[in-house]
Structure formats: C-alpha cells, structure tokens
C-alpha cells in the first residue's frame, strides 16, 4: 500500500519533470514540440558525458540544460519560427529534428545501450518501506522545478510578459511586449527543461539514441489534457500517472504503458478542456 503510494507519487514526479518543458512551449507558442523526445535524449547523453568525464553526477543536470537550451535556440530560430502560422507542419518538422538528433547521437556514440552513474544510490526507509533513494529525490527535484517555474512565471517581469503572451498575444504586442523574443526564450527554456528531464531519467533506465521517444507521447498527452497551466499539469500527472501505476501492478505492465495515452484521449473526447479550469 505504502509502496504503491510512493510509486504513484514518484511516477507523477517523473512525468511532471518530463512534461513541463513541453507544456511551456505549447502554452506560449501553441505548437507541440515533437523534438522534445530528441532533446531529452540529448540531455541523457549530456549526463553520460558528464559521468564519463568523472564529474559529479549532479553536474549532469546543468550540463544537460545547457545542451538542450543551445539546441533549442537553433531550433526555434531556424525551424519553428518560419512555421509559426502552420502548427501541424511544426509538429512534423520538430519530429524530423528528433530523427536528426537521434541519428547524430548514433553516429557519435553508437547504437548500444549505455548506463550512467546515479547521483544517489541505495534505498531510504520511509514509513517502514525501503524505497529507492533516487526516485524519492526525483520528487524533490520535480517539486523544485515546478516551484522555480512558478516563481519565474509569477514573480518576474519576463514571467508576467510570458503569461500575457499566453493569454492574448495581440494585446501583449500592443502594450510593447516583444512577443517574438518571449517565444524564443520560452522555446529555449522548454528545450533546456527537456534536456534536464533526459538527464533525470537516465539513472532509472539507460541511455540509447531513442530513449526520449517513448516519453514523448505520454508527455504530449499530459500537456493536451492540462491546457497551459502548471497546476493542472500536476493534477493530470497525479491522476493519469496514478492510473498507470495501478493498471501496471494489478493488470499488466503492457496495459499500464497505454493507460496515459488512452485515458487522455477519452478525457479529451468527453471534456475538450481536460484538467484545465474553465
């Protein structure tokens, strides 16, 4: 019971960390960044490089953010910006970028599965249950990410301008806000967050050139049911992630892997707003 609750909480935390970057980009730019999976892979390899260089495994997080952010800048400038008026084409082009990232990594690092060093190993005793310390740490990291993003959006001028662009871009422009710059910065931040997410999940599984792809669809569905709110994303991660854990433990892991996508599709059919408030 306690183990299952911890599974649900940690799964939701991981999903939250993976989906925030996508949510940010979707909220501001109204496009789905299919390169998110590729950028996560990039973050995973950044973690690999960091640990192979013998650096502290925690350093993997900033390094991955840097990798993702720099790639994000280039992607926004050369691919996403020209497609601003064609959102479905933006999905395709960013998917193409995902392929490119995967192949470049394959050429550089080979096709094989590799492992990184986890910054935390072993287990912690919690409520009489011995549980993976790293998974528990992820809850803290995801919470910190969520809080930092909230602080950025709610507490800074840039965050205020970003929220303004999300709500009504034309009105924001009329007030002198450079919405193109806001979009550029948002995409960069979203890509950096994708990199961080990639670095965070590597100790849980392994690193390979397609590691980000399986996460993409779940993250994408979570974002669609959440609208553009970090809070409803949290709710969606807890509910759908929880459902995933329950289905996986009580029925079959394979069906568990489908739970988020199928539930999200049905939720959107019944209530197009999903978890977002009216």
């Amino acid at each position: 019971m306690i183990a299952q609750t911890l599974d649900i909480v940690t799964t939701a935390a991981i999903l939250y960390a993976v989906a925030t970057g996508l949510l940010l980009v979707f909220g501001v730019m109204k496009i789905i960044n299919f390169a998110h999976g590729g950028l996560m892979t990039l973050g995973g390899y950044a973690a690999l490089v960091t640990t192979q260089a013998g650096w502290n495994p925690w350093l993997a997080i900033p390094v991955a953010a840097l990798f993702g952010g720099v790639a994000g800048m280039a992607i926004e400038r050369f691919v996403v910006r020209p497609l601003y008026a064609r959102p479905l084409d933006a999905i395709l082009a960013t998917w193409g970028l995902s392929i490119i990232i995967g192949q470049v990594i394959t050429i550089a690092f080979g096709r094989g599965v590799q492992f990184t060093q986890a910054p935390l190993s072993g287990t912690l005793d919690l409520f009489g249950e011995s549980y993976s310390a790293y998974r528990l740490a992820l809850v803290g990291i995801a919470a910190a990410l969520g809080l930092a993003l909230t602080a950025l959006l709610q507490g800074t001028r840039l965050g205020l301008e970003t929220r303004a662009v999300i709500m009504n871009e034309d009105l924001a422009r009329g007030l002198g806000i450079n919405s193109a710059l806001v979009r550029f910065l948002t995409f960069t931040l979203g890509a950096a967050l994708a990199g961080v997410a990639g670095a965070l999940i590597t100790p849980l599984s392994s690193v390979d050139p397609n590691m980000g792809v399986p996460w993409l669809v779940n993250a994408f569905m979570l974002v669609l049911v959440s609208g553009a709110s970090l809070l409803s994303l949290l709710a969606a991660c807890l509910v759908l992630g929880g459902a995933q854990v329950l289905v996986a433990t009580h029925f079959s892991p394979v069906l568990g892997g489908l739970t988020i996508a199928v539930l999200a599709a049905v939720i959107l059919r019944i209530r197009p707003k999903g978890f977002a408030r009216d």
Binding site: F78, V79, P82, L83, D89, L92, A93, G96, L97, I99, I100, G102, Q103, V104, I107
Partner: peptide, 14 residues
Amino acid sequence: WQLIIGTVFVLVIV
C-alpha cells in the same frame, strides 16, 4: 542515410 532523410524532411517542411 536516416540523417539525410531527416534533414531533407525538415528542409522540405520548412
């Protein structure tokens, strides 16, 4: 080959 296809694809879309 996959890299070329991916690159051409992005170019064509854009």
